[in-house]
């Protein structure tokens, strides 16, 4: 506590993650995760409807990832003290987007042609989205910035 009191003159109210950016980031996980689960269902049952679901869920994930990339780019440009974190968020989102795009193309293959590549990519993209979101939200600071 003492340290904090000492530094009181340097306190500056900091913005947390912008609510819009938060929504964009958070939306990527359920969509890519849904895609992954649908992929697994198709992989194990051959029921084509799961493959259709996966393609749409991933497409939805890509829309939000794309917007999150833009949002994090703006964040990066405006970042003051937390530049490193903003940069890491941006890079992770960009990687998610690139892999997600590859995954979308793989899911455009007909029938079982999307397997097993699609399932493997869905795992990777989902993990990437979770990492990006995790780091993105970690930049949230309530009250203080160094």
């Amino acid at each position: 506590m003492a340290a904090v009191i000492d530094e009181r003159p340097h306190y500056r109210p900091a913005r947390g993650i912008h609510p819009l950016h938060a929504v964009l980031l958070a939306a990527t996980i359920p969509l890519f995760l849904g895609g992954l689960l649908s992929d697994y269902a198709y992989y194990s049952t051959f029921d084509i409807q799961w493959s259709n679901f996966a393609a749409w869920l991933i497409a939805g994930g890509m829309v939000f990832t794309g917007l999150a990339v833009l949002s994090s780019l703006i964040d990066l440009a405006r970042a003051r003290g937390r530049r490193k974190q903003a940069l890491l968020t941006f890079v992770l989102l960009l990687v998610t987007f690139a892999l997600g795009l590859v995954n979308s193309f793989v899911h455009a293959r007909d029938a079982y042609g999307s397997m097993p590549d699609g399932l493997i990519l869905s795992v990777i993209v989902t993990v990437a989205a979770i990492l990006a979101t995790w780091v993105g939200f970690s930049s949230l600071r309530v009250g203080v910035t160094p």
Partner: peptide, 8 residues
């Protein structure tokens, strides 16, 4: 009804 059964 498809290229290669992608409609089931």
């Amino acid at each position: 009804n498809s290229n290669i059964t992608e409609r089931g």
